[in-house]
Nucleic acid binder design. Structure first.
Lengths: 225, 225
DNA sequence: TGATTGTCTTTCGTCTACAGTCCACGGCGC
DNA sequence: GCGCCGTGGACTGTAGACGAAAGACAATCA
């Protein structure tokens, strides 16, 4: 038997770095979302390739994916430019985000089981703890995980994928403005959990819609300095 | 002078076909949506390249774009396979489609001007004419243009882009089943136009939701043979 | 006879090279 | 001084080539 001669649990599994293009994609997305690459900047393939230690080809493929997802604009025969967000576009993204999140809340209310609800409450508790500790980064992270969990409970993969993309871009647009709604946001999360527990689809939809609209208003209030 | 040696009117060279990858993308998408390439089929890069008369590179880029949009599955170190739709996924797509279309109807009701409404009525008239003439292809085309016009009147580019992708895939999933709801569909369109004219957002939302739900049911009824 | 292993083919992933295109800069004429 | 044209450089678009991983098949050994 083979298993006798092998250390059973500790097979290190041969970490495969995966396709280069994916790593380049994530690296570039990280650079864009962190504003290391500013909007409007010209991205030169050979430059990025040299900087990342790879050839131009994976860089090209990553850029094209970023293009289809709206992170960069690919002007023909000229190259890639980091997308420049406009007020109008940001507003449209927020509209769509509200829509998708509200539907997710409705589906979550329809489908969630007790385990899922328990998970939501656990995330909520952690989020409140982070807020109490003035851990802004932690609170933001828990907020994202909370919404992701709602999405997961909704059980609609298509919806989840669209929402993930929209969410990421919304966050990018509004990261320059500091955001911390603190306690109020988590109070609304608690109310949402209650609605989900009661399987009240309409109330869950309404609460999530109001919740994201609150966030939208607070974003707008801060972005118009 | 150079011009004397040239055939004066026949300089065909001005038409720029645009990047090759885009043409390959559209060609492949056409082949997939028309079922010339069946779901599950293994797409070999060099084969496609040879068939289309280009190099592998544009084919690769087109395949990756098709991958991010959900038309093909790209298995690492193995290649591209035409995505195989499942019942569950189709249902999720229909849910999202209903959501996006209903929101578009709401926004159209809020924003549409008289010119837009006139355009809708014109499209509706043409659609009814096609139905009366038993022109199924024409009716389907007019239906698509009607919904696209609603989307345009909504004035939300982000929403429109998402809806376009979802719509295309929904149509792909359900093209094997013959679809013709005929007159009833256009009656509902008329009702929707009335709601938009009255600027009644709630009624427009409800009508569009019911409309796409009807379509969904008729799809389901036919697909479960 | 069955499983295992070695090899072999196919295909992808990546790199390098070349041609085409666009932009900027400088010279020239007006 | 101002505008237009030609030229140079830089970058992208495309093609072709090489190395590597995965699957298939046959030969070998228990």
């Amino acid at each position: 038997m083979l298993s006798t001669g092998l250390p059973q649990g500790a097979v290190p599994k041969l970490e495969r770095p995966g396709p280069l293009r994916d790593r380049v994609y994530e690296a570039l997305l990280e650079l864009i979302t962190t504003r290391a690459l500013q909007p409007g900047r010209h991205l030169v393939e050979s430059e990025l390739a040299g900087h990342l230690g790879v050839s131009r080809q994976p860089v090209r493929e990553a850029l094209q994916r970023l293009n289809t997802e709206g992170w960069v604009d690919l002007r023909p025969a000229q190259g890639a430019f980091v997308h420049e967000p406009t007020e109008e576009e940001a507003d449209q993204l927020l509209t769509v985000r509200t829509l998708l999140e509200a539907e997710a809340a409705r589906l979550a209310a329809a489908n969630a089981d007790s385990a899922g609800i328990a998970a939501l409450e656990a995330l909520c508790a952690e989020g409140e703890k982070a807020v109490d500790a003035d851990d802004v980064d932690g609170a933001v992270a828990m907020n994202a995980r909370f919404h992701a969990k709602i999405m997961e409970l909704a059980g609609n993969a298509v919806l989840a994928e669209l929402a993930a993309q929209v969410d990421r871009r919304v966050r990018w647009y509004y990261t320059p403005v500091a955001r911390r709604r603190g306690h109020q946001s988590w109070i609304e999360h608690r109310e949402l959990i209650a609605a989900v527990t009661d399987r009240d689809e309409q109330r869950a939809t309404r609460l999530m819609r109001e919740h994201t609209e609150h966030t939208r208003r607070s974003y707008h209030a801060r972005s118009r300095v």
